[in-house]
């Protein structure tokens, strides 16, 4: 368990963390999610001890480590830009932490072999980081962090510098790795899809505060406020209610005028994105909104641009509207 209590940190006038408290359960894979400048990286670096907090405490496994140097926190840290030791081979990079701990040579060899296999870099073990691709470098960095058996694995935008395909592969690979190794993992990301895909728990940060903590489903289906809702996916405003575009149901106006709570609207544009179809609409008051349908739905309705439809949603705004006003004002 990692416990952060009342953490605050300022860089000059900029408040990076504002009285943040968060519990991270042992063995979980928690994502610290948020836009840039939200304080997520600062929070991660505070857990690692790479940045000092102005106030508050960090507890790892029951021990208060607020004043403890990074060397003694039992952590592994993976940087966005790999921070590979450029003058060392892959093997020596992975062995670094063990060699610092003066472990016997045979033990180091065994452990490094093991990790090379886990990250699939056996054939590259004698190469230098410059001779590896970005994805390979990041796997090396992960192996290096795991080599010292950390209590906690901290990843700072680990896939941020990689292209989309490699990122998706590595993401899946990391999830599988976590299921095997079970080390408490905290991952910083600004990509909501990544957080929803990989994490057991998400803490969503915004302007140095935590907006909501919960499972991916909690945050997606039961967002605490408009910021959370719109950060985790697209949002449409359907006659004063906030709904997900894929929760909107369209019916032809002729036969569906009686739909309870339905909003009359006109189809402005239909965009086909493979299986998904994005329908851009305008209601009778002139407000524009978007519905997300499947190709089948659109074909069944024989929808054309200019058609009059009735839009409705079974779900209402998942949070109380007053909190909306507060968020907008802040």
């Amino acid at each position: 368990m990692i416990t952060i209590a009342h953490a605050s940190k300022a860089f000059g006038d900029f408040l990076a963390l504002h009285d943040v408290s968060l519990d991270i359960p042992t063995g979980s894979l928690t994502a610290l999610l948020g836009p840039s400048g939200s304080g997520k990286s600062t929070l991660l670096r505070a857990i690692a001890g790479l940045d000092d907090l102005d106030g508050g405490t960090v507890t790892i496994g029951g021990a208060d480590v607020t004043q403890v140097v990074p060397q003694k926190r039992g952590i592994g840290f993976v940087f966005q830009h790999y921070a590979a030791f450029k003058h060392m081979t892959v093997r020596d990079n992975i062995a670094f932490g063990l060699s610092i701990r003066r472990r016997p040579k045979a033990e180091i060899r065994r452990r490094v072999d093991e990790l090379l296999e886990v990250v699939g870099l056996e054939v590259f073990q004698n190469r230098y980081p410059a001779q590896l691709s970005g994805g390979q470098r990041q796997r090396m960095a992960l192996a290096r962090a795991l080599a010292v058996d950390p209590q906690v694995l901290l990843l700072d935008e680990p896939f941020g510098a990689l292209d989309a395909k490699v990122r998706a592969d590595l993401r899946r690979w990391l999830r599988r790795l976590h299921d095997e190794v079970h080390v408490t993992t905290v991952l910083v990301t600004h990509d909501q899809e990544e957080a929803l895909d990989i994490a057991d728990r998400i803490a969503l940060l915004h302007k140095g505060r935590i907006e909501q903590v919960g499972t991916p489903d909690d945050l997606y289906d039961r967002p605490a406020n408009e910021f959370v809702m719109s950060f985790l996916g697209s949002v449409s405003r359907l006659g004063g209610r906030l709904v997900r575009p894929h929760d909107i149901v369209l019916e032809r106006a002729a036969g569906g005028s009686a739909v309870d709570g339905g909003i009359r609207a006109t189809v402005r544009r239909i965009v086909r994105l493979g299986f998904e179809v994005r329908v851009e609409l305008q209601d009778d008051d002139g407000a524009e909104f978007t519905a997300q349908l499947t190709r089948g739905d659109v074909e069944a309705l024989a929808l054309r641009e200019g058609d009059a439809v009735v839009a409705s949603s079974a779900r209402g705004t998942p949070f109380e509207e007053p909190s909306l006003a507060v968020t907008v004002a802040s």
Binding site: P70, F79, A84, F85, G97
Partner: peptide, 26 residues
């Protein structure tokens, strides 16, 4: 970053200097 990585892996600043910084600036 390399020095910070060395620190998280347990290296003292002295060790980080000898094993990471010095080779990098050689």
């Amino acid at each position: 970053e390399q020095e910070q990585a060395a620190a998280t892996l347990g290296a003292s600043s002295w060790q980080a200097f000898w094993r990471v910084t010095l080779p990098a600036i050689r």
